[in-house]
């Protein structure tokens, strides 16, 4: 079996930051910093292989064992509920999952609430816990537009600074859950590459606390 540790990193800022921690923790891979079109990056000496994937796909790679570990946002873990171990809160990429809408929005319980979101499962479970009937509108991007053009009453989305919301006359109404990046691991890999994965996890924790 493949004895390298396969790490799925999310493309973009979060992935760069996460790689920074891994590099400092003793898992560097110089190839990563070269400007090329490679999809996988290996440091055989240390026994690690990185690959960059779309952030929302990290959990898929890890759950299906193509990657042993990965860095995924808590939003993705809540939305897709992958069958993985969640080993570490990396305390970066911090933001909030919120209900947002027009600043002066007042929920009218006599009507079905129309909710636009990229996270249908999170939205559904949040409102079902409140026993509030909603109509879900699943969008893939530009969620903030929905209440502006009357597609929905509110949105459920990630809020980092809230700048986009405020500039468009919207505001966060309720926080559903705080979000940050997590280190996740495939359950089977954790049995068969356990020592190596535990070492990596402990090193990352140490680097974070420095």
């Amino acid at each position: 079996m493949d004895r390298l540790i396969n790490v799925a990193l999310p493309k973009g800022r979060l992935g760069d930051k996460a790689y920074g921690i891994l590099e400092k923790s003793g898992y560097p891979c110089p190839e990563m910093k070269e400007d090329n079109r490679k999809l996988t990056f290996e440091n055989e000496e240390i026994g690690v292989r990185y690959f960059l994937v779309k952030p929302s796909d990290v959990a898929v790679y890890v759950e299906r064992g193509a990657a042993d570990i990965g860095i995924a946002g808590k939003d993705i873990l809540l939305e897709y509920k992958p069958d993985v171990y969640e080993l570490l809160d990396l305390k970066m990429g911090c933001c909030r999952m919120c209900v947002a809408g027009p600043k002066d929005f007042r929920d009218d319980p006599a009507k079905t609430l129309r909710v636009a979101t990229k996270f249908p499962n999170i939205a559904r479970s949040y409102y079902s816990a409140l026993s509030r009937e909603i109509e879900l509108i699943h969008l893939n991007g530009s969620i903030e537009l929905a209440p502006l053009v009357g597609l929905s009453d509110v949105i459920v989305d990630i809020v980092e600074t809230g700048k986009t919301l405020y500039e468009n006359g919207l505001a966060p109404l309720t926080e559903i859950v705080p979000i940050s990046a997590r280190l996740i691991a495939n359950k089977a890999s954790f049995k068969f590459k356990g020592d190596a994965l535990r070492r990596l996890c402990a090193q990352m924790e140490r680097t974070m606390n420095l």
Binding site: M1, E63, R64, G65, D83, N186, K187, A188, K191, F192
Partner: peptide, 9 residues
């Protein structure tokens, strides 16, 4: 139970 090479139990 898990076997090496299969990602799920």
């Amino acid at each position: 139970g898990f076997v090496c090479g299969v990602p799920q139990s």
